Simulated scan of single mutants.
Amino acid sequence: MNLSAYLLILVAYLFGSISSAIIFCRLAGLPDPRENGSHNPGATNVLRIGGRISALGVLLFDILKGAVPVLIAFQLGLVPSEIGFIALAACLGHIFPIFFQFRGGKGVATAFGALLPISSLVAGAGLCSWLIVFLLCGYSSLSAVVTGLVMPFYVWWFRPEFTFPVALVCCLLVYRHHDNIQRLWRGQEERIWDKLKLGK
């Protein structure tokens, strides 16, 4: 691994550590997402606590956090293993942000952003999987877990050279949803549209 790859891994982590959910909530006068709703600083929780426009901004920024470092890596001509670890670093930054006491989000949007430059086809397949599960059940967390489980197979089929790093990212995403999995098992997880109806 060359020096530029190491530097870009560091940059990807630091860029990923910018918690857009916390920043957007502060700008919009919304409560801290780490202390309200699901206590997760991500777009879904910002939506839960009433910030629809802010949630969209968070979603777009989190996608960029994954996409930009990977795009730069491709422009520098880095090899797939290096690009994969740069994508992983961006997700780690989002999940364990150094600027916010290492209390970050689940990393789904950032992982999706990192996948876009690797393969828009794979990213599209992942998005379709997420949407199908979400429309069937209404659980954002279950949609993310199912998508995380099937994504390595999509990557293996279309871009096999990226299978290992993407599988690492997906394992991390599923692990970050362990609390949601327990609530789903107990029947205590909240559907997104139920919360939105209550907020009207």
Score class of each variant (00 low, 15 high):
residue 133 V to W: 04
residue 106 K to N: 11
residue 136 L to N: 10
residue 17 S to Q: 00
residue 17 S to N: 05
residue 66 G to Q: 05
residue 123 A to G: 12
residue 117 P to K: 05
residue 114 A to C: 14
residue 141 S to A: 15
residue 112 F to T: 15
residue 112 F to D: 01
residue 125 A to F: 10
residue 88 L to Y: 08
residue 111 A to C: 10
residue 64 L to V: 14
residue 119 S to F: 12
residue 131 L to D: 03
residue 64 L to S: 13
residue 17 S to T: 01
residue 50 G to W: 13
residue 19 S to M: 01
residue 44 T to C: 11
residue 135 L to D: 06
residue 126 G to L: 06
residue 48 R to D: 03
residue 21 A to V: 08
residue 81 S to T: 14
residue 134 F to S: 13
residue 97 P to T: 06
residue 24 F to L: 14
residue 70 V to L: 10
residue 135 L to V: 09
residue 19 S to H: 10
residue 23 I to S: 03
residue 25 C to Q: 04
residue 63 I to L: 15
residue 115 L to R: 09
residue 74 F to D: 04
residue 104 G to D: 05
residue 141 S to V: 07
residue 127 L to K: 02
residue 129 S to G: 00
residue 69 P to D: 06
residue 62 D to P: 13
residue 64 L to A: 15
residue 58 V to C: 04
residue 120 S to E: 07
residue 36 N to P: 01
residue 110 T to N: 04
residue 57 G to N: 11
residue 93 G to L: 12
residue 138 G to C: 09
residue 96 F to P: 00
residue 72 I to V: 13
residue 105 G to H: 06
residue 138 G to L: 08
residue 120 S to V: 11
residue 125 A to H: 03
residue 32 D to Y: 01
residue 132 I to Y: 01
residue 31 P to Y: 08
residue 141 S to W: 10
residue 96 F to H: 08
residue 113 G to A: 09
residue 143 S to Y: 02
residue 24 F to N: 08
residue 78 L to W: 07
residue 71 L to C: 09
residue 107 G to E: 03
residue 79 V to M: 09
residue 33 P to M: 02
residue 30 L to K: 12
residue 148 G to N: 06
residue 100 F to E: 06
residue 111 A to T: 08
residue 33 P to D: 02
residue 38 S to V: 07
residue 72 I to Y: 03
residue 36 N to S: 14
residue 144 A to R: 05
residue 45 N to V: 01
residue 54 S to H: 14
residue 79 V to L: 07
residue 103 R to G: 01
residue 98 I to F: 02
residue 113 G to V: 08
residue 18 I to S: 03
residue 65 K to E: 12
residue 47 L to P: 12
residue 99 F to M: 11
residue 115 L to P: 10
residue 114 A to K: 14
residue 70 V to Y: 14
residue 96 F to V: 00
residue 59 L to T: 11
residue 129 S to D: 01
residue 52 R to I: 11
residue 107 G to K: 08
residue 105 G to W: 00
residue 87 A to F: 15
residue 138 G to S: 13
residue 129 S to C: 14
residue 38 S to T: 10
residue 106 K to C: 09
residue 91 C to S: 06
residue 81 S to G: 00
residue 138 G to H: 13
residue 126 G to I: 06
residue 133 V to P: 07
residue 90 A to M: 15
residue 121 L to S: 13
residue 77 G to E: 00
residue 145 V to C: 14
residue 136 L to W: 14
residue 104 G to S: 02
residue 100 F to M: 10
residue 117 P to E: 10
residue 141 S to K: 06
residue 116 L to R: 09
residue 137 C to W: 13
